[in-house]
Protein backbone atom coordinates (compact mmCIF):
# COMPACT_ATOMS: atom_id res chain seq x y z
CA UNK A 1 0.00 0.00 0.00
CA UNK A 2 1.32 3.44 -0.94
CA UNK A 3 1.84 5.85 1.93
CA UNK A 4 0.76 9.22 0.46
CA UNK A 5 2.81 11.15 2.98
CA UNK A 6 6.07 9.67 1.63
CA UNK A 7 8.05 11.40 -1.13
CA UNK A 8 7.31 9.97 -4.56
CA UNK A 9 3.86 8.75 -3.64
CA UNK A 10 1.50 8.89 -6.60
CA UNK A 11 -1.69 9.86 -4.86
CA UNK A 12 -2.15 13.33 -3.39
CA UNK A 13 -1.81 13.38 0.38
CA UNK A 14 -4.59 15.93 0.76
CA UNK A 15 -7.09 16.97 -1.89
CA UNK A 16 -10.44 18.56 -2.59
CA UNK A 17 -12.45 18.48 -5.77
CA UNK A 18 -15.46 20.41 -6.99
CA UNK A 19 -17.18 20.37 -10.37
CA UNK A 20 -15.04 23.20 -11.82
CA UNK A 21 -11.87 23.08 -9.79
CA UNK A 22 -9.65 20.93 -7.66
CA UNK A 23 -6.75 21.34 -5.27
CA UNK A 24 -4.26 18.71 -4.22
CA UNK A 25 -1.14 18.53 -2.11
CA UNK A 26 1.68 16.41 -3.52
CA UNK A 27 4.69 15.37 -1.47
CA UNK A 28 7.53 15.21 -3.99
CA UNK A 29 11.29 14.66 -3.79
CA UNK A 30 11.95 18.38 -4.19
CA UNK A 31 9.38 19.34 -1.56
CA UNK A 32 5.68 19.86 -1.17
CA UNK A 33 3.67 21.16 -4.12
CA UNK A 34 0.06 22.27 -3.91
CA UNK A 35 -1.64 22.29 -7.26
CA UNK A 36 -4.82 24.20 -8.12
CA UNK A 37 -6.67 23.32 -11.30
CA UNK A 38 -9.70 24.60 -13.17
CA UNK A 39 -11.88 27.61 -12.47
CA UNK A 40 -12.54 28.79 -8.93
CA UNK A 41 -15.69 30.82 -9.42
CA UNK A 42 -18.41 29.36 -7.23
CA UNK A 43 -20.42 31.46 -4.77
CA UNK A 44 -18.35 30.67 -1.69
CA UNK A 45 -15.29 28.58 -2.54
CA UNK A 46 -13.80 29.36 0.87
CA UNK A 47 -16.14 26.77 2.37
CA UNK A 48 -14.20 24.15 0.40
CA UNK A 49 -10.75 25.71 0.14
CA UNK A 50 -10.24 26.97 3.69
CA UNK A 51 -10.53 23.49 5.27
CA UNK A 52 -8.11 22.26 2.59
CA UNK A 53 -5.69 25.08 3.46
CA UNK A 54 -6.03 24.15 7.14
CA UNK A 55 -4.95 20.58 6.42
CA UNK A 56 -2.06 21.59 4.19
CA UNK A 57 -0.90 24.16 6.73
CA UNK A 58 -0.96 21.59 9.54
CA UNK A 59 1.02 19.16 7.40
CA UNK A 60 3.65 21.81 6.59
CA UNK A 61 4.01 22.84 10.22
CA UNK A 62 4.49 19.23 11.30
CA UNK A 63 7.01 18.69 8.52
CA UNK A 64 8.92 21.83 9.49
CA UNK A 65 8.74 23.07 5.89
CA UNK A 66 10.52 26.27 4.91
CA UNK A 67 8.53 26.72 1.73
CA UNK A 68 5.83 25.17 -0.42
CA UNK A 69 5.32 25.46 -4.15
CA UNK A 70 1.83 26.63 -5.05
CA UNK A 71 1.19 25.63 -8.63
CA UNK A 72 -1.20 27.88 -10.58
CA UNK A 73 -0.16 26.73 -14.05
CA UNK A 74 -3.46 24.89 -14.59
CA UNK A 75 -5.67 27.38 -12.76
CA UNK A 76 -7.76 29.15 -15.38
CA UNK A 77 -9.35 31.71 -13.08
CA UNK A 78 -9.99 32.50 -9.44
CA UNK A 79 -12.69 34.91 -8.31
CA UNK A 80 -12.24 37.25 -5.36
CA UNK A 81 -14.08 34.88 -3.02
CA UNK A 82 -11.61 32.14 -3.90
CA UNK A 83 -8.70 34.55 -3.75
CA UNK A 84 -9.54 35.13 -0.11
CA UNK A 85 -8.49 31.57 0.66
CA UNK A 86 -4.93 32.51 -0.25
CA UNK A 87 -5.15 35.54 2.03
CA UNK A 88 -6.51 33.22 4.70
CA UNK A 89 -3.49 30.95 4.12
CA UNK A 90 -1.06 33.87 4.47
CA UNK A 91 -2.75 34.97 7.68
CA UNK A 92 -2.29 31.46 9.07
CA UNK A 93 1.41 31.58 8.14
CA UNK A 94 1.79 34.99 9.76
CA UNK A 95 0.41 33.61 13.01
CA UNK A 96 2.70 30.57 12.99
CA UNK A 97 5.49 32.26 14.95
CA UNK A 98 8.91 30.74 14.30
CA UNK A 99 7.40 28.00 12.12
CA UNK A 100 6.57 30.37 9.29
CA UNK A 101 7.20 29.18 5.74
CA UNK A 102 6.99 30.77 2.30
CA UNK A 103 4.46 30.29 -0.49
CA UNK A 104 6.38 30.02 -3.78
CA UNK A 105 3.80 30.58 -6.49
CA UNK A 106 4.33 29.04 -9.91
CA UNK A 107 2.24 30.98 -12.41
CA UNK A 108 1.30 30.67 -16.05
CA UNK A 109 2.32 33.58 -18.33
CA UNK A 110 -0.64 32.76 -20.55
CA UNK A 111 -3.08 33.48 -17.72
CA UNK A 112 -2.45 37.19 -17.37
CA UNK A 113 -4.73 37.74 -14.36
CA UNK A 114 -2.30 35.68 -12.28
CA UNK A 115 0.44 38.28 -12.61
CA UNK A 116 -1.63 41.10 -11.08
CA UNK A 117 -3.28 38.90 -8.46
CA UNK A 118 0.05 37.49 -7.29
CA UNK A 119 1.60 40.94 -7.39
CA UNK A 120 -1.08 42.08 -4.94
CA UNK A 121 -0.53 39.04 -2.72
CA UNK A 122 3.21 39.70 -2.63
CA UNK A 123 2.49 43.26 -1.51
CA UNK A 124 0.15 41.97 1.17
CA UNK A 125 2.89 39.83 2.64
CA UNK A 126 6.36 40.19 1.06
CA UNK A 127 7.81 37.80 3.64
CA UNK A 128 5.38 34.96 2.94
CA UNK A 129 4.98 35.23 -0.83
CA UNK A 130 7.42 34.57 -3.62
CA UNK A 131 6.46 34.59 -7.28
CA UNK A 132 8.26 32.14 -9.53
Amino acid sequence: MVDPSKPGARTPAIQVSEEKYSAAMHVEPMGTRVQFRGTISTVNPASVLNPFVDQVHDHLLKAGAKDVRVDFTELEFCNSSGFKSFIYWIQKIQSAGDKQYRLRFISSPARKWQRTSLLALSCYSPSAVEIG
Partner: peptide, 10 residues
Protein backbone atom coordinates in the same frame (compact mmCIF):
# COMPACT_ATOMS: atom_id res chain seq x y z
CA UNK B 1 -12.58 41.11 4.38
CA UNK B 2 -14.29 38.26 6.21
CA UNK B 3 -12.39 35.08 5.39
CA UNK B 4 -15.19 32.54 5.75
CA UNK B 5 -17.92 34.20 3.71
CA UNK B 6 -18.11 35.77 0.27
CA UNK B 7 -17.79 39.46 -0.45
CA UNK B 8 -15.65 42.36 0.56
CA UNK B 9 -12.84 42.11 -1.96
CA UNK B 10 -14.19 42.24 -5.53
Amino acid sequence: APMNQRGGLG
